[in-house]
Design a protein around this nucleic acid. Structure first.
Lengths: 104, 104
DNA sequence: GTTCTCTATTCGTTCTATGATATATACGAC
DNA sequence: GTCGTATATATCATAGAACGAATAGAGAAC
């Protein structure tokens, strides 16, 4: 039930903001902190949750930790949504084939 | 920021279970309650949250309330995911055209 | 080695969400 | 109208999450 962790991770506005910033490009924790109102420990905690959900990946470089959004991390979310395709209007059916072809 | 409410609504396991059962077909609150461990008031509260997020719709019939999953309710979630398509591997790029064509 | 910087973890507090019990409302049967 | 059923709301207790402050650890510079 990885989608459970993904939903929980993205339910918090601060974490969504972190994820959105990391989607724009890799960033160190210090960079990430600038422009955010929360403290550095709070940022680290949110990063740990996002990492646990597979939404971000960490790259260590000396005493710096660089984070970036993992594109594959959202795949389980797409799969979960796709489970309800049969109840969707017909024109959304086309999404099925595309997703299946991508073996998400 | 409707996706905020959607993420929050689906973050709870009980609410996801409710949504999944309602995706299988329309159901009264009483029917929904059978097979669930939580009390009837709890079910009503979860339905109110799901309704607020636009994920389920209500149909009144006398003293009964029938609920069903609203397919369009998940559309903002797809749109949100689609915002990060440019950071995805190239082969996922095809999703863009499909989603755009659906004017979600 | 010491010191400074960067990040993670621990701890305590506050806030929010969940759930149950109790109560209220709405409707149909009578 | 009363009674019974179906659903919603109110109130409260508890559990969990978020946050900041303080601390710990890891690594570079010296």
């Amino acid at each position: 039930m990885i989608e459970a962790e993904i939903f929980r991770a993205l339910a918090d506005p601060t974490r969504r903001a972190v994820f959105e910033r990391l989607a724009a490009g890799e960033m160190s924790v210090s960079e990430l902190r600038t422009g955010m109102t929360v403290s550095q420990p709070a940022v680290s905690q949110h990063l740990a949750v996002l990492r646990g959900a597979g939404l971000v990946v960490e790259r260590r470089a000396g005493r710096n930790a660089f984070y970036r959004a993992d594109p594959q991390g959202l795949a389980p979310l797409l799969s979960w949504i796709e489970r309800y395709r049969t109840f969707w209007p017909e024109r959304i059916e086309r999404l099925k084939a595309v997703l299946k072809d991508m073996d998400l």
